[in-house]
């Protein structure tokens, strides 16, 4: 069982600086840096890669907030429509994913990236996102704002009021493991799209399970919005992996 660690807060001149925010900033920076680093290694176009990752990160960041308002606070949308743009409030992981994927798709269409390179950019994005996500979820683990159901599991956290799951920590562990798998796979040649497919598939499955442990969640059609997104993610991941497997078979036959 994990110990409970309160979020470190630095107070300077009456202003508070939270570890969570610092880790989110690190997530963005590390994610972008890692993307560019791998883009160089993979001989991807550096100029486009820079435009790509900065645009994807920025839009994903804003959409992560906007989608949360739309799904979880439509009342706020009616009262103060401009609040959708206030990205300093609330973040929603699947909102970020949706925003990032749509932006990536639009950019690749706009810059007429070749079909093969599209998969390479997306693969790179999936890998960089996973690495950056470790820092983001480390922040969630410290801020303890994804509280799970009470549990005595080894994966539970010894909260002062009793042990229970910390879903941010669970996601940190999952993302760390997934990143380790990616680093391992990255050592040898692989078909473009593998990282993306694996990410969508495994993260989707993980989120379906993880959201079952959430204590406070909206339900639509018996599932949380995140679970619905997760099902779409699983389907997308499965389709990509099936496509890769078929292409491999075709190559083998040829």
């Amino acid at each position: 069982m994990f110990p409970y660690i309160a979020q470190p807060v630095l107070e300077i001149a009456g202003q508070r600086f939270y570890a969570f925010g610092a880790l989110v900033a690190l997530a963005l920076l590390v994610g972008c840096w890692f993307f560019m680093r791998r883009a160089r290694r993979e001989h991807l176009d550096q100029r486009f890669a820079r435009i790509f990752i900065v645009s994807v990160a920025a839009v994903a960041f804003f959409v992560s907030h906007a989608l949360k308002v739309v799904i979880y606070a439509p009342m706020l949308l009616r009262e103060k429509p401009w609040s959708v743009l206030d990205a300093s409030q609330d973040m929603y992981s699947f909102g970020g994913l949706v925003g990032g994927v749509l932006t990536a798709a639009w950019l690749m269409h706009r810059y007429r990236v070749s079909p093969r390179d599209r998969w390479r950019y997306l693969d790179n994005l999936a890998f960089a996102f996973t690495v950056g996500w470790i820092f983001g979820r480390a922040g969630c683990s410290l801020s303890h704002d994804h509280i799970g159901v009470p549990s005595n599991s080894l994966l539970a956290v010894r909260f002062p009021g009793g042990s229970r799951y910390d879903l941010g920590l669970l996601e940190l562990i999952f993302t760390g493991l997934l990143a380790a798998v990616f680093f391992r796979l990255d050592r040898r040649p692989r078909p473009p799209g593998l990282f993306l497919g694996l990410f969508f598939l495994t993260y989707g499955i993980f989120r379906v399970w993880r959201d079952q442990l959430e204590v406070d969640v909206h339900r639509f059609l018996g599932s949380s919005p995140d679970q619905l997104f997760a099902v779409v993610s699983v389907a997308a991941g499965a389709l990509i992996l099936v496509k890769l497997a078929r292409e491999r078979q075709v190559r083998a036959v040829a």
């Binding site: 979020q7 508070r16 969570f20 925010g21 610092a22 900033a25």
Partner: peptide, 9 residues
């Protein structure tokens, strides 16, 4: 800036 703006999700 981020650590000032964000304390949690």
């Amino acid at each position: 800036l981020f650590s000032f703006l964000f304390a949690g999700c």
